[in-house]
């Protein structure tokens, strides 16, 4: 009948009015600068470059393979390869990026660079308060601004970082084992060669 639905609606808004004072369920607003939501494992904002150890230049995992640059959908990554080599995260000598720029005004936080990276070198950051008063230079981040330590990565994505660390440790162990095996083989070969030469020498004698 006339007005009944209107009265029902009025009752509902009144219920919500009073409910917002008593029920946490109803008043879900987060008072932002004072209150912050807890960190989420999967959160992502802009990419950063992971480095191991103390020195960000020495420890950088990136080997400038250009995969992320190629796969980045909005093409916001720019890499220039170095001419010399340095040991990478697992200890193999590799190229490293001389220039690594990300234009975060173009980046759309899609995480594809992270997914395609075979070296676990680029990861997603969670920091989001990046406002700047310089539209161009302030939003073009270079290698130094992008480099963050592995400890930071462990802090923002603990589960993911643990898995990455484990995989890297395994890889390192493998490489180390391989290197050791190679060294052993080399040593053995040298020893064998030495032995054979000595035998030869002995027989010659």
């Amino acid at each position: 009948m006339f007005g009944e639905g209107i009265l029902k609606g009025l009752a509902e808004t009144a219920r919500n009015f009073f409910g917002s004072y008593v029920s946490k369920d109803r008043l879900t607003t987060v008072q932002f600068p004072e209150q912050r939501l807890p960190q989420i494992e999967a959160a992502r904002n802009f990419p950063f470059l992971v480095y191991d150890g103390e020195d960000w230049q020495q420890g950088m995992r990136c080997v400038s393979c250009f995969i992320c640059e190629k796969e980045c959908p909005p093409k916001c990554i720019f890499i220039e390869k170095s001419t010399d080599k340095k040991p990478d995260a697992v200890g193999k000598p590799q190229f490293y990026p001389k220039v690594f720029n990300i234009d975060v005004s173009v980046c759309m936080s899609c995480q594809i660079c992270v997914e395609v990276c075979p070296f676990d070198a680029i990861k997603m950051d969670v920091a989001f308060e990046h406002s700047t008063n310089n539209r161009f230079a302030g939003l073009l981040w270079d290698k130094k601004e992008l480099a963050k330590p592995n400890e930071y990565y462990r802090q923002i994505h603990p589960i993911e970082a643990a898995a990455v660390d484990a995989a890297l440790a395994e890889e390192r162990a493998k490489v180390a084992a391989k290197a050791k095996a190679a060294a052993d083989a080399k040593a053995a070969a040298i020893a064998a060669a030495a032995a054979s030469t000595s035998v030869e020498v002995a027989t010659e004698k």
Partner: peptide
């Protein structure tokens, strides 16, 4: 239910 209470039978909405 809240939505329906608020709107579904509201004369003005109808």
């Amino acid at each position: 239910d809240e939505f329906e209470q608020l709107l579904a039978s509201n004369e003005i909405l109808m």
